[in-house]
Design a protein around this nucleic acid. Sequence first.
DNA 1: AGAGACATGTAACCTGTTACATGATTCC
DNA 2: GGAATCATGTAACAGGTTACATGTCTCT
Lengths: 197, 197
Amino acid sequence: MSLQNALLGVLDARPMSGYELAQFFDSGSGWVWSAPQSQIYPHLRRMEADGLVVAERTVRGSKLERRVYSLTDAGRAALLAWIGEYHEPPAPRDPFALQALLFDMVMPEEAINVLKAFVVEQDRVAEQYEAHAARLRALDTPLLRERLRARPEAEHERIGRMKAHVFAGRAAVARQQAAWAREAIVLAAGPAAGEER
Amino acid sequence: MSLQNALLGVLDARPMSGYELAQFFDSGSGWVWSAPQSQIYPHLRRMEADGLVVAERTVRGSKLERRVYSLTDAGRAALLAWIGEYHEPPAPRDPFALQALLFDMVMPEEAINVLKAFVVEQDRVAEQYEAHAARLRALDTPLLRERLRARPEAEHERIGRMKAHVFAGRAAVARQQAAWAREAIVLAAGPAAGEER
DNA sequence: AGAGACATGTAACCTGTTACATGATTCC
DNA sequence: GGAATCATGTAACAGGTTACATGTCTCT
């Protein structure tokens, strides 16, 4: 269901082709949801069959067709219903926590190397999230600007702050995990030489 | 791959039947990984065919068969190799963040209700994680005790602290998310009556 | 003429979910 | 005798991944 709502949510900002949506979710911009092309094209067709979106066929040059999808009233209604309801979180499935739970089975140096790579990665993603949060707060991303065109100007700042806060939250989680991993490195090293009291 | 490593990781503590493993991952104890029975039984058969585990068939009563699986050397080696290597995190896919990004589309009260339910849930799971971390730190869970029987006593405390730290980390993330959601409630409410300066 | 972006799709496979099916054993 | 638990599975489906296939347009 979530892929569908992600697609509907982006199409609410502006109509897009499958290609544009695939770019959005395949890399970079799709920071809370990602999906490959091969999942997006068929799903758009299904959503069209279900009446959630309509495709306008347009031609670039003389032959190259694009199908530009936009929300129908039914699609928008389905999206709003989903957003307005609380949904149980998915079952926990955290490969890294699983790995970390078993670190006592390997040599400390191995665990520490894995943890260091984790720290680097978490700090990296935290920076990305923070940068994106800043752009949203400044109302300075292409998609947000499209979105705000349909909204009264008085709301713009509140909307920007709400969306920025989502990414700030992701960033905070990543920072937290990096800090956690740094503590884990100390625990994995154990009572090391030079650290005895 | 992770289901497989989760199974191997539990079997390292002690041999178990599919039924016991299914109970472990279906509810409660499987806090970092979960999987239904229907996934576990076939996977154990596959791991047996791959030589990662061996099943000892035993009979309870006069007819009821159980297959008790234990690690082979190959299984243990595969597990250790996985634990000792850094693995790229899975593509981000966070249904709640997606929902939160779109809260500006619905009425503030609706968003706030969803956020309140989220806070309750995150605080609840944080408590569970904290409780489990405390039990691990006290070396007081059945599975950990089994595990420690194969370890020199001098290591017990370090192992307990490392495992507890994993759950403490999950708890910290949950607390963080709850705090984030409380801030989000304020932002969603916006400049409300009585709050003007 | 060729490289790279534009544009849409299919096929095979793996993982995970929901529901169903079957029977034995233990405890009250 | 009946309920709960023990015990092992299958089938159909939904969601996601990797790789392949095809052709157009734009810019150099």
